[in-house]
Design a protein around this nucleic acid. Structure first.
Length: 815
RNA sequence: GCCGAAGUGGCGGAAUGGCAGACGCGCUACGUUCAGGGCGUAGUGUCCUUAAGGACGUGAGGGUUCAAAUCCCUCCUUCGGCACCA
């Protein structure tokens, strides 16, 4: 056997042994408490870069720690394998998406194995295989049956470069495509939607979730709940069927300040409400708005534009006549697509009123004012003025009073409005799970019967950059027979958003090879919900939101008995390189492989844990990794070299025993809280101390052995290969990873002696080593008797003495 | 603009009211027959001082407190998210 630390040899040897012995095989019928530690599965982009390692290595250490603590741990791995990049590669390089994806998986799996993780590969899940997407399609049918899926023609985000529809969540920055950065435009298409809005209220409830505040806030903002009133304004317009237009407002108390009325240019009543002489101008304006890209239209600070339609509505509370305008800042998708404009108390309305020379009327007087005209829109609360019988009320009282009036008169009602839109699941793409729907001229929209699943992706589709799904041109796929009437019919050619696949993969891991159902009920009951979910924060309003919706819907369908998939969530930070997030498209990817080859997987794992707080991420810099590598080597030398006890010093033995217990305590708490960096610092301090002890030989051989075995056990989650090798060389039985996590005694973990800090007027003046048990009187006396203290308080009046047990004595003197 | 996170040596960072800078990198000196990203020992915030010691010091300014990197207020910078949501 080698005498010097040779990580490559050790790591490949133990990886083979662990695999051959199946030591990480996960059993479902185990009477230990279960622990489901999940890391977000990677997208099959080709190579694992160090960002993946940063996500996975500390997570694996945590799962190993839980395993040693006596839990039956499920820490699975798989691949999110459908999606655009595979298809783009097919178009640009002529490689079939399946071949490209599977080749990438093979490479990524090899890299993951080189990390020395506890993944049980027999549970691997790959979303692009028929055995998996069959069930993604099955879930689509379930949502359809439950009335949660519908088809609608709607304006959708369209990326002209990728030639595809994008979900709201895939439009980033100033309205650009998430993948290629091209400005997004609009298009009308028949699409499938999921009614996620029905769950808006329930998705706002994070009360039982141990999640980062940041993510909860992002999800809350995404749902965008607003309370207010819906009010009907009668139309003063003869000859049309519609008698009134409804608006939503959060400020019914400002209703006496309405001076004009606004519709979105897309509002369906616009043509009818346009007077003949205004027709040309209005239709030109509407056409101009439609040409605008979404991001241009909603850009804040942009000048507000609009035109008068030539018709009027009536304010129900004061019978005032209000001109109806259309304006580009009114969004067709929010509220009712109509706005009662109150320029005195809304910045946007004021800007528009000033530009279009429309009147402004103050109806809320800010505190200390009498209701005179305002220079700026006042959006706070105050006293109602110019508001008929309501004048004099506070805006809060007015809110309630006006809502009551509206409800009594039948003019409106209190209501709640959400910003959240339904989830668009259709994609005009090949590389996804086909939507299992058939269109029949006679029977209409017919779901594919469950027994006919999966609807297989045809392997022989042609990949052309046409913007239409290759499935559309694949006649063998499109042409089928109606399951109801057996006549000729056509298949839906859209595939599903890949977020569908990732909305249930965590359920599949519980029983990944089940052929008769997406998951076994018993196994899901045992494993779910996920006890610890870790991954990047970029999924805050996408994957994490959809998965919650999915599980809530499944609960309502009676398919699962819990309604939150992830009880605890932790987001690691991002690894930055050259000022940018690491990604293939930015060309700033660092591969971990060369570091693994040179320094070993244990060094890379430990370095990522040591680099800083996990939640903060950081700039990649390979300077520090040598420090970890040297430390592992010193650990090797210290443990493999023989220990000779010279003579036993009880004081040193006591100190070492204390350090053993203190280190167990700190390392355990740090792992529990994902504080990997300080955990490694503590291990370094421990090993540095052990090296000194080894040089002096001042403790017994048995205590030395105890210290080493404890050290190796604590090291095992971070550096599993080295710990296993040293465990075996020390003569302990295989495997260290099946050992129990060491326990500490609180009494021994406590310090016996402490450094008492002595301050005068808050400034450090002296330090004394004292027994931890020192009492207040004793400590005060000691402090006052010190020479350095005496010289500081000489000739000054003692005001008081503060004593903080076990920490500090602060002597306050008059100056 | 709004919301959130962060700002500490030459660098990554530690300390969550009580010794600022743990641990590691880098650097300096010395030692080592030390070939390869060696190894060991000591030192390493700034300033004053031969030294002992002292003063200053956690983005800036103010406040609370016996005591502030930590709590409060105002501001600046960086990063992330949202952004005409009526």
């Amino acid at each position: 056997m080698a005498q010097t630390y040779d990580p490559r040899e050790i790591e490949s040897r133990w990886q083979q042994r662990w695999a051959a012995d199946h030591i990480y095989k996960v059993q479902d019928d185990d009477n230990r408490p279960k622990f489901y530690a999940l890391t977000m599965f990677p997208y099959t982009s080709g190579d694992l870069h160090i960002g993946h390692w940063y996500a996975m290595a500390p997570a694996d250490a945590y799962a190993r720690f839980k395993r040693m603590q006596g839990y039956n741990v499920l820490h699975p791995m798989g691949f999110d394998a459908f999606g655009l990049p595979a298809e783009n590669t097919a178009i640009s390089r002529g490689i079939h998406p399946y071949d490209w994806t599977m080749k990438n998986i093979e490479n990524m799996r090899r890299q993951l194995k080189s990390m020395g993780t506890i993944y049980d590969w027999s549970r691997e899940v790959i979303t692009c295989l028929p055995e998996y997407y069959k069930w993604t399609q099955w879930f689509f049918l379930k949502f359809h049956q439950a009335g949660l899926a519908y088809r609608a023609k709607a304006p959708v985000n369209w990326c002209p470069k990728c030639q595809t529809v994008l979900a709201n969540e895939q439009v980033v920055g100033e309205g650009s495509c998430e993948r290629c950065g091209t400005p997004v435009t609009k298009r009308e298409l028949e699409q499938w939607f999921f009614r996620i809005t029905r769950y808006a209220e329930r998705l706002l409830d994070h009360s039982r979730l141990n999640w980062p505040e940041r993510i909860k806030t992002m999800q809350k903002n995404w749902v965008g709940k607003s309370e207010g009133a819906e009010i009907s304004f009668p139309l003063e317009h003869a000859g049309i069927e519609q008698k009134e237009i409804r608006v939503f407002t959060t400020r019914p108390d400002t209703i006496f300040g309405v001076t004009f009325f606004l519709l979105a240019p897309e509002h369906p009543l616009v043509p009818q409400l346009t007077s003949p002489e205004r027709k040309t101008e209005v239709s030109e304006y509407v056409a101009w708005c439609r040409r605008q890209a979404e991001y241009e239209r909603v850009a804040l600070g942009r000048e507000k534009t609009g035109v008068f339609l030539g018709s009027y509505v009536v304010n129900p509370v004061n019978r005032e006549r209000l001109p109806v305008w259309i304006a580009d800042y009114v969004l067709p998708t929010y509220g009712t697509g109509a706005v009662m404009a109150v320029p005195a108390h809304d910045e946007r309305d004021l800007a528009f009123a000033r530009k279009s020379k429309l009147p402004v009327r103050t109806v809320i007087a800010p505190p200390g004012s009498a209701g005179e005209a305002l220079a700026e829109a006042y959006t706070g609360s105050g006293t109602m003025v110019n508001s008929g019988a309501f004048s004099g009320l506070s805006s809060e009282q007015g809110y309630e009073a006006i809502c009551t009036l509206l409800e009594e008169k039948g003019w409106g009602r209190r209501t709640v409005v959400y910003r959240l839109r339904d989830w668009l699941v259709s994609r005009q793409r090949y590389w996804g799970a086909p939507i299992p729907i058939i269109y029949c001229d006679k029977c209409g929209t017919v779901p594919v019967p469950e027994e006919d699943l999966p609807v297989m992706l045809p392997p022989d589709a042609e990949f052309k950059p046409t913007g239409e799904s290759p499935l559309k041109y694949c006649h063998s796929f499109v042409n089928t027979t109606c399951p109801r009437c057996s006549r000729r019919a056509q298949r839906e050619t859209d595939t599903m958003d890949t977020f569908m696949c990732s909305s249930w993969y965590f359920l599949r891991y519980a029983s990944p090879r089940t052929r008769v159902a997406p998951f076994s009920d018993a196994k899901v009951k045992y494993w779910l919900p996920v006890d610890s979910y870790t991954g990047g924060a970029e999924h805050a309003v996408m994957h994490l939101f959809y998965a919650r919706f999915f599980v809530k819907a499944l609960k309502d369908m009676g398919l699962v008995d819990f309604d939150e998939p992830f009880t605890h969530l932790f987001n690691q930070g991002t690894i930055i390189y050259r000022g940018d997030k690491m990604s293939k498209s930015r060309g700033n990817v660092i591969a971990p492989d060369e570091y693994v080859v040179k320094l070993g997987a244990d060094a890379v794992r430990a370095y990522f844990m040591f680099i800083g707080p996990w939640e903060l991420g950081g700039e990649w810099n390979d300077k520090g990794i040598v420090g970890i590598s040297r430390w592992l080597k010193r650990v090797w030398d210290m443990v493999t070299g023989s220990y000779t006890s010279q003579f036993i010093d009880p004081q040193v033995e006591k100190e070492l025993r204390h350090l053993i217990h203190k280190t167990i305590k700190v390392v355990t708490a740090d792992l529990e809280n994902f504080r990997f960096n300080t955990m490694l610092s503590s291990l370094m301090e421990f090993s540095n101390y052990l090296s000194r002890v080894k040089g002096s030989g001042l403790v017994s051989s048995s205590l030395w052995g105890e210290a080493i075995s404890c050290f190796l056990l604590l090291l095992a989650p971070a550096a599993p290969h080295l710990a296993e090798e040293l465990w075996s060389r020390t003569g302990y039985s295989y495997s260290i990873h099946n050992q129990t996590w060491p326990k500490y005694e609180e009494g021994l973990a406590q310090e016996e002696e402490i450094t008492l800090v002595i301050q005068v007027n808050g400034k450090l003046r002296d330090r004394v080593l004292v027994p931890a048990s020192i009492g207040e009187v004793e400590a005060r006396e000691l402090a006052l008797s010190r020479d350095r203290v005496k010289s500081c308080i000489h000739n000054k009046k003692l005001t008081k003495v503060i004593y903080v047990p076990r920490r500090v004595v602060n002597i306050v003197v008059a100056s």
